[in-house]
Design a binder for these strands. Structure first.
Length: 552
RNA sequence: GCGCCAGUAGCUCAGCCGGAUAGAGCAACGGCCUUCUAAGCCGUAGGCCAGAGGUUCGAAUCCUCUCUGGCGUACCA
């Protein structure tokens, strides 16, 4: 990676100047805001001048003069307060295009084994009580893309969906299906308080009647309940999985809460806790002193009636995560669950686990812009869109892109009309269009009798316009961007990078004609540049789970 | 009350482990198609980075306080 190479060269420069070299991490190579300040810049002289008992500008000049001799750079110069501005040589820029073509879909991939982490990424994890909704969809898009990016950078990421198929809500689900079943069979119906009434309930009831006919009503009450439970859980989960597949989202693991409970893990947690000094009885219930470990207050773990609260199975689930030997556990949660993180962390700490590796990403809420009105998506208010509706209405590509345009901890306003528009206002089409445009160039070239296989690297010397260099500079930054995204989990930077890359490309395309049979070498050089751009666009889109169309 | 997140251009937002002139995209206004996809390009305009203090050579960025909005704060999951 370019940025690493530059860092190393700075490090060496200190040696050459007989100065004690700073730590590698202290050398920050940044992207200046203005292009008059170079391709990259460095503020090490400002930061370190004091410790060398010299003036920043003097130090900057010394460093710059050693680096300026290096052919890797076109120019390295020290400026006013003590910045060092770096310009990459034309040869290096041309070589980047060769690298992109050589590595192809692996351009940007990092196989750094030494920093590789084993990561568990859990997301969506909805109750199997109905269709997935748009809040789940934001989590699905974010988690899936983050996993793809981290994997691409050499981490070993597993994605996981935790199925909450046990507990209160499931009992209500079973009753709701039974009500629906009775209604379908025209039998007496007793409504369930707080029961579920979504489309999946009706479909499952339908399915049961179709498969079992009247026999379901003749069997014992216990057997009937067992059957309904199986149909309901399997049926709804199957539908949720289908929606996720339509949304291009894949999970490595599906973990069932019921299965964990069947293994006795809830009892295990209770006995582990009993061995600590942090549980006590009060008001007929059993409490754990999470407040001693950063929680706002202590929590009940066992209610007066002898049943446990949700904290216990959740601790059990997280213990199972720890036992699988990950270096990092990431829970991606919805906005309504952030109150849950402190008690979970406190609980894990009490059980003796290292909570530094347990991280949470809270996705903020989703609002839909319909017409010119903002509609808050809320399950409670019953105005929530399902994921399937979103896919039908807007499509997977546009939806995923829109979900990933904002940083995770900002609320997201989703403009449906804009997402559906097929014009430059819509950033998804803007990016995909750049990719498609390049494809049509290839056709054009062969029509003109220019053969791409005749390309030779020395033709790249024909590139000499600013629009061409700008495009290469943009391409060059793709790998280091991915490193930054992976480290900071800021997936949204990839969407804005792609918009920027598309824009840089469109500018080049408008200004510099690619195909011209009178200048075959130039045509091939530019085509080579275009195809490098196409590779990077495709790689970026693929990491976002979005298609890269060849024609539009 | 307490906690978390946010407050940057008319709108939606980047930038936030401090750096040099605060950036995009929409919307507005004015241009560009007899030549590779105009689903495109170019230009103009638009800002006391919510407010007040502090830290420093230097603050949108870090600290404190205030104001505004969202969410959370269960013996629900």
């Amino acid at each position: 990676m370019i940025i690493e190479t530059i860092k190393q060269k700075f490090y060496n420069s200190f040696k050459e100047l007989d100065l004690e070299a700073p730590l590698m991490d202290e050398i920050e190579i940044e992207h200046p805001k203005h292009k008059e300040y170079g391709d990259y810049s460095c503020n090490i002289a400002l930061k370190k001048a004091k410790s060398y008992k010299t003036k920043p500008l003097k130090l900057a000049k010394d460093i710059a003069s050693t680096l300026d001799k290096d052919n890797f750079f076109a120019k390295v110069e020290a400026i006013k307060p003590g910045f060092i501005n770096i310009y990459i040589s034309k040869k290096e820029l041309r070589d980047i295009l060769l690298t992109i073509h050589e590595t192809g879909e692996d351009f940007g991939r990092n196989t750094q084994s030494e920093n590789s982490q084993k990561v568990l990424l859990e997301f969506v994890s909805a109750n199997p009580t109905g269709p997935l909704n748009v809040v789940n969809a934001r989590a699905a898009a974010f988690g899936d893309s983050l996993a793809k990016i981290m994997n691409f950078l050499g981490h070993e990421v597993q994605t996981e969906y935790y199925i909450n198929d046990a507990g209160n809500q499931i009992d209500i689900l079973i009753e709701s299906v039974e009500v629906e079943l009775n209604r379908l069979a025209e039998m007496p119906v007793k409504e369930v308080e707080g029961g579920y009434k979504n489309q999946y309930i009706r479909e499952v009831a339908d399915e049961i009647l179709e498969e079992e006919h009247q026999s379901i009503f003749r069997t014992s009450e216990a057997n009937k309940e067992k059957k309904i439970r199986k149909y309901a859980l399997d049926g709804i989960l199957k539908r949720q999985k289908e929606s996720l597949l339509d949304f291009n989202v894949f999970f490595d693991n599906w973990i069932s809460e019921q299965a964990l409970r069947d293994k006795g893990s809830v009892e295990d947690v209770l006995s582990y806790l009993a061995e600590t000094d942090y549980i006590y009885e009060k008001d007929d219930a059993m409490w754990v002193s999470t407040s001693k470990f950063g929680d706002d207050k202590d929590r009940v773990i066992m209610k007066g009636d002898g049943t446990t609260t949700y904290l216990i199975p959740d601790l059990a689930y997280h213990i199972s995560k720890y036992k699988r030997g990950f270096n990092q556990l990431i829970d991606i949660l919805g906005p309504d669950h952030h109150g849950h993180t402190k008690k979970l962390q406190a609980g894990m700490k009490i059980l003796g686990y290292d909570i530094d590796i347990l991280n949470f990403i809270i996705l903020q809420q989703v609002n839909f812009i319909i017409g010119d009105k903002k509609v808050k998506m809320s399950k409670r208010e019953g105005n929530i869109f399902t994921l399937d509706q979103l896919i039908d209405e807007v499509g997977t590509d546009a939806s995923r892109f829109f979900f990933l345009m904002r940083k995770s901890n900002s609320p997201l306003d989703f403009d449906i009309e804009l997402a559906k528009k097929q014009s430059s206002e819509n950033p998804v089409y803007y990016v995909q269009y750049a990719h498609a445009r390049i494809n049509s160039l290839e056709k054009k070239v062969s029509k003109e009798g220019i053969k791409f296989k005749n390309f030779k690297p020395e033709y790249l010397k024909r590139l000499r316009y600013e629009e061409e260099w700008n495009l290469i500079r943009k391409l060059m930054k793709f790998p280091e961007l991915l490193v930054h995204i992976s480290a900071t989990q800021s997936v949204h930077l990839l969407t804005s990078y792609l918009i920027g890359l598309a824009s840089t490309y469109h500018t080049f395309y408008q200004k510099r004609r690619v195909v011209n049979k009178r200048y075959k070498e130039l045509s091939l050089a530019r085509l080579y540049l275009c195809k490098a751009t196409q590779i990077v666009l495709a790689n970026g889109l693929r990491l976002l789970g979005i298609s890269a169309p060849k024609e539009m």
